[in-house]
Simulated scan of single mutants.
Amino acid sequence: MKPMLIAPLCLTALLGACTEMGTNVDPILDGAPNAQFQSDLSACRSLARSQKQLDQETMAAAAIGAGIGGILGEVDDEGDALGGAVVGALAGAAAGASEASDTRETIVLNCLRGRGHTVVN
């Protein structure tokens, strides 16, 4: 399979695996949860899922990774620019997806706080 076909497939698989990342956080409460907690947690998780994984920041990270990887692949005696670009794009996309996951987790926790739950983490 050619590297040009492998990169989009790997990127799609990577982002597909990250679909729920950040939304399944189990918050630590200061005190016992009230009767409304599970409903609020579900609503906050849904809100966090609406945050796209493949956003502009993730795409920018993938593009920067591809550029750096391509340059390093060209400079390396045994490497090639295309292979380096593919690896760099995947690494950049993974970093961007990780950042989006952190954002989603923050959304869940802040949403619960906003609904009156005392969330420690």
Rank of each mutant, 00 (worst) to 15 (best):
Q38Y: 11
C18D: 06
T23R: 02
G67W: 00
Q38D: 10
A63N: 02
Q36H: 13
N24E: 12
Q53W: 06
V25Y: 04
A66E: 08
S39H: 07
R45N: 03
F37A: 06
G65E: 07
I64P: 11
A61F: 12
D80R: 06
G69W: 13
R49A: 14
N34L: 06
E57T: 14
G22W: 01
D55F: 07
M59E: 15
L41E: 11
L54Y: 11
V75E: 10
G79K: 01
S46L: 09
F37V: 05
I71M: 13
S42E: 13
A81G: 03
I68Q: 12
G31D: 01
G79N: 02
D30Y: 07
M21K: 09
S50W: 08
A48M: 06
N34K: 08
E74I: 00
A48W: 03
C18Y: 09
Q53N: 09
G31W: 04
G22V: 09
I68D: 08
D77H: 09
D77F: 01
E78I: 07
G70R: 06
V75C: 11
D80N: 14
C18R: 04
E57N: 10
I71D: 14
D76T: 14
I71A: 15
R45F: 10
Q53R: 12
I68E: 11
R45C: 07
E74P: 01
A32Y: 09
T19I: 09
A62W: 01
D77P: 04
G69V: 09
G22Y: 02
S42H: 10
A60R: 11
S46N: 07
L72C: 07
M59Q: 14
M59G: 10
D30Q: 05
Q36G: 03
Q36K: 10
G31A: 01
G22C: 03
G73V: 03
G73L: 07
S50K: 15
L72Q: 13
Q53L: 15
C44T: 00
A35H: 09
E57L: 10
G70I: 00
